[in-house]
Design a protein around this nucleic acid. Structure first.
Length: 519
RNA sequence: CGCGGCGUGGAGCAGUGGUAGCUCGCCAGGCUCAUAACCUGGAGAUCAGUGGUUCAAAUCCACUCGUCGCAACCA
C-alpha cells in the first residue's frame, strides 16, 4: 500500500510581548483550514505553530512585570495556546524558542552554516543610542534630525565585532529557485515584490549576532555573542520537526509544503530563510504564502491606537465557528480584510442564523413533526437533483480548487450559493409542509433531498466550521463515520443504506438552533 | 517617480478577458415548515479618470487623480 502523502505546514511564530489580536488569529485560521482539509483528504499532516521568545523586547517586558523571562514566556505561551484551542486551531506542535531543545538544535544549525563557510567575522560600525542600547539606521537618525527618534539625544559612533551571514552569496541561486518554482511565493503580487527587491537592491550580508544580551541563544563558535532573533526564529520551522536531534522525523517532514506568514515578513521568508537552508545544506521550503492583514474599520490594528479586539471577546459573545466564519468569509486570505462589530453581526445573522441555521431548523422540524424523525422507505434512495444549473460534483471540485488556492472566502461563497440557497429554494418550490397532507411518500422524498443537501453542506464546511459541520452531520444516521468523511464523498457516497433517521435530540419536534439570531 | 495595495449600485464588499454578483438597506408580492426566519420580482452602477492592446476589458498595458499600508524585530 502506498504511504499517504505528507503535508507539513507552519504559521509564523508570534512575539509574546502582548496577547494575540484578531489579525494574528486570521493567519492561524487560514492555516487551520488548510491543515484540516489536507488531513481529511488523506494526507499525513504536521501543523507547526509557536512563539518567538528570544528577543530583547520580551526580556524587557518580563522585567517590567517583574518576572523571570522564561516564566513570562511560558505563561504567555499558555495564554496563546488557550486562544488557539478555543478557536479549534488544529496544530500538532507548538514551539517555544526559549526551550532548551530548540536552542540546542538552533546552535547545531548555525554551526553547520559556519562550518560551510557562510559566516564571517567583521566590524559593524554605526550610530548607537545609549538610551535604546541599540544601533540606529542612518536613515532613522537622519529623519529624526540627527538624533535618536525615541530619546531625542544624539547617537554616538560605535564600532563592534560581529558575525555576518553571506546572504549576498545566494542571490543567483535564489533567483534561479524562484524561476524553477513559480509557485514558491504566493500570492503572485508578493512574488513580484520580492523579485523586484532583489533585482533592484540586491541582497546584502547581514549581521546575525548581538552582544551584551543575557536573554537569547549563545553562538556556539563564539559564546560572547547571542544569535540575531530572526535567524533563530526561522529555525523553528526545522527544529520543530526534528532538525538536530531526530533525523528520521526531519527526513520525513522537511521540506515544508507551506509557510503561512503575514505579508510584512515576506522578505525574511522568501530571501533570508531559503538562503539559510541552502547554506546549511538542506532543501528550501516549497512554498511561502503571504496573507493579507485585518484592519479595524480601515485602521491598522495597533497597541498605540488602542484598538485591539481580543479574540476571546468574540468567542465568548458568539462562538468559535462564528469567529471562524467571519474572518474566512469576509476577509480574502491573500488580500486584506476589515473587522467591525456591526459587520460581524450582520454577517452572523444573514449567513449563519437566517440561512444555514434556519435551513437546518426547518428541515429538522419537518422531519420531526411529520415523521417522528424517521423517513420510512428511504433506504437506498438516490437523492433527487435540486439544482437547476450546477451539480454537486462540480461544486465540490470548485470548492476544492478554492481551498487549495487558499481562497477561503470564495469557497464559502460557493457553498452558500450552490448548496444552501438552492436548498431553501427547493423547499419553497416543493412545499413539503403542504404536500405532506396529500402525499406522505413523496414528501419523505423531498425531505430526503433536503437532508442530503445538509449532508453536502456539512462535509463541505468540515474544514471551515468543524463543530457546526459535525453537529449537522451527526444529527442524522448517515452510514459513513464523520471522522472518515472527505470531500468527494459528497457526491460519490450519497446513497443512504438504511432508512433516514434524525438522531439529534428533539424537544417538541424542535432542535436547538445552530446559531441563535441576535437582535 | 522608493515599493506595494486599494478605488465596483445608498452603505460594506466579492469578481480579474466573454451578457455586472453578494450582504445590508429600500419598494412590491408570496409563503407560513422554520431562529419575525424563507421565496419571488423591482428600483439603483457610464466597475475612479484618460489613452491603448483585443473579435471582446471592471478584468491586460501606460499615464493621471484620490486613498491606505510598507521601507529589513509590530500578523
Amino acid at each position: 500500500m502506498a504511504e499517504a502523502p505528507r503535508w507539513y505546514q507552519t504559521t509564523a511564530i508570534d512575539y509574546p510581548n502582548s496577547r494575540p489580536h484578531i489579525g494574528t488569529a486570521f493567519e492561524k485560521l487560514g492555516a487551520d483550514v488548510q491543515a484540516r482539509y489536507r488531513r481529511q483528504e488523506g494526507y499525513q499532516v504536521f501543523f507547526l505553530m509557536g512563539n518567538d521568545e528570544n528577543t530583547v523586547k520580551v526580556a524587557k517586558k518580563a522585567a517590567e512585570v517583574g518576572q523571570d523571562p522564561k516564566a513570562y514566556c511560558d505563561e504567555m505561551a499558555r495564554q496563546f495556546r488557550a486562544i488557539w484551542d478555543a478557536l479549534d486551531i488544529s496544530y500538532d506542535a507548538f514551539v517555544q524558542t526559549s526551550d532548551e531543545r530548540h536552542k540546542q538544535c538552533c546552535r547545531k544549525f548555525i554551526q553547520k552554516v559556519y562550518d560551510n563557510g557562510y559566516i564571517y567575522k567583521a566590524n559593524y560600525e554605526g550610530w548607537y543610542c545609549n538610551g535604546c542600547e541599540e544601533f540606529k539606521t542612518e536613515k532613522a537618525i537622519q529623519e529624526a534630525g540627527g538624533v535618536c527618534p525615541n530619546h531625542k539625544t544624539p547617537p554616538v559612533r560605535r564600532s563592534e565585532e560581529c558575525y555576518y551571514f553571506k546572504l549576498s552569496a545566494f542571490q543567483d541561486r535564489l533567483l534561479q529557485y524562484y524561476e524553477d518554482n513559480p509557485d514558491f511565493i504566493q500570492p503572485e503580487s508578493r512574488r513580484n515584490e520580492i523579485l523586484s527587491l532583489i533585482q533592484n537592491d540586491g541582497l546584502h550580508d547581514i549581521n546575525i549576532t548581538r552582544t551584551g544580551e543575557e536573554w537569547g541563544i549563545r553562538v556556539p563558535f563564539d559564546e560572547r555573542f547571542t544569535i540575531y532573533v530572526w535567524f533563530d526564529a526561522l529555525l523553528t520551522y526545522v527544529t520543530g520537526v526534528g532538525y538536530g536531534d531526530d533525523a528520521d522525523a526531519f527526513a520525513k517532514w522537511w521540506p515544508a509544503d507551506t509557510h503561512f506568514i503575514g505579508k510584512d515578513i515576506t522578505r525574511f521568508h522568501c530571501a533570508l530563510w531559503p538562503a539559510m537552508c541552502l547554506a546549511a545544506g538542506i532543501e528550501p521550503p516549497r512554498k511561502v504564502f503571504g496573507h493579507g492583514f485585518v484592519y479595524l474599520k480601515g485602521e491598522k490594528i495597533s497597541k498605540t491606537l488602542g484598538n485591539i479586539v481580543e479574540p476571546m471577546e468574540i468567542i465568548t459573545q458568539f462562538n468559535a465557528d462564528a469567529f471562524r466564519y467571519y474572518f474566512l468569509r469576509e476577509c480574502p486570505f491573500p488580500g486584506d480584510g476589515d473587522f467591525s462589530w456591526e459587520r460581524f453581526e450582520q454577517l452572523y445573522n444573514a449567513d449563519l442564523a437566517n440561512n444555514l441555521g434556519n435551513l437546518y431548523s426547518r428541515v429538522m422540524t419537518l422531519v420531526g413533526k411529520n415523521y417522528l424523525g424517521r423517513l420510512q422507505e428511504t433506504a437506498g434512495r438516490e437523492p433527487g437533483v435540486i439544482y437547476t444549473d450546477v451539480d454537486l460534483e462540480t461544486t465540490v471540485r470548485q470548492v476544492q480548487a478554492h481551498v487549495e488556492a487558499c481562497q477561503y472566502n470564495q469557497a464559502l461563497q460557493k457553498i452558500w450559493a450552490q448548496v444552501l440557497d438552492p436548498a431553501n429554494q427547493y423547499a419553497e418550490r416543493k412545499e413539503p409542509w403542504k404536500l405532506v397532507k396529500s402525499d406522505r411518500a413523496a414528501t419523505a422524498g423531498v425531505l430526503c433531498d433536503l437532508v442530503e443537501q445538509l449532508r453536502a453542506a456539512a462535509i463541505l464546511l468540515k474544514p471551515f466550521l468543524p463543530r457546526t459541520a459535525e453537529t449537522i452531520y451527526k444529527s442524522f444516521n448517515f452510514p459513513q463515520p464523520w471522522e472518515e468523511v472527505r470531500y468527494e464523498d459528497v457526491w460519490s457516497r450519497a446513497r443512504q443504506t438504511e432508512e433516514l433517521r434524525v438522531t439529534a435530540a428533539l424537544e417538541d419536534g424542535k432542535v436547538k438552533p445552530l446559531f441563535p439570531r441576535i437582535a
